[in-house]
Amino acid sequence: MEHELDDERFRALIEESQDLNSDAMKAANEPLNGIVEVGLERRAQRGYADTVREERYERAQAQRLLVMAGVAVGAAGLGALAASPAYAQGAAEDVAALQTAASLENLAVLTYKTALTLPYLMKEDRAIKTVAAFAKITMEQHTEHGKAFNARAVELGGKEQTGTHPELTPVVMAAVPKLKAGGPLDVVALAITLEDTATSTYVANIMSAMTSPEVRLLFGTVAGVESQHLSTLLAVQALLKGGAPELITVKETGGATDAAKLPGAAPSIAIPETFKKIDLARKPAEGAVK
């Protein structure tokens, strides 16, 4: 049975989230429109779609030039335009990284979806309602992240990744029996691992010189959200372990948390790294479409 989260304020939050999601590509495009400062000023006043069209045009022009050069000066001329294969290689690497990212998002969606069927996440107490609400909204956000990564992969000439991450999916599947036999802390622990993995992977991709500015920005706008999922889950985990589940609540699920009762160290526990570590980062091409 699907868990009923019928609180009026929570419904409002879900609706707000859905509104956000319906505007997700718009929201994604807005920051993408901002990447105009490194030799891209001429694109500053244009929309993202224009930028993409321009890139496609330039790519086509480069290919035409390559052909023309081949006709005019033969093989030697082609050698002089070796930058084009390099461009193609870079785009291919970006596509692979985007597909891998989509596979991580798809896996996160699957995991939260599975978690929401667990009986102990269908209870009516406020903490559980809040955790379930978080799972539902986070699942929606991951869905939109996956769409954004796939949209960019397709724009760069790749295919959509509709599958889940090949290396991590068996790990999650193996954890399902433990989730069924366990409790909220088991779900939270698994979610922490997935959110940290996604954040770390995207941060590593940004740090890599292989990705284009546009792709880096997309990874940045998503990593900043995954890191918040991670932080929230760490706080929830600390409060559950600390025996203070009643503090796991937000306005929309029955009332704001009582800040005066929050353990002093709780906020710090939720932000354990001064610089985001990337130990859990997955290889960029691990989830590429074969």
Binding site: L13, P31, Q141, G220, V225, S227, Q228, V250, T257, A270
Partner: peptide, 17 residues
């Protein structure tokens, strides 16, 4: 995110930064 939680708000209000 944590400041939002302390304020009683949903801690992850945005789908994208």
């Amino acid at each position: 995110a944590i400041l939002n939680f302390v304020l009683g708000n949903y801690p992850v209000p945005d789908v994208f930064v």
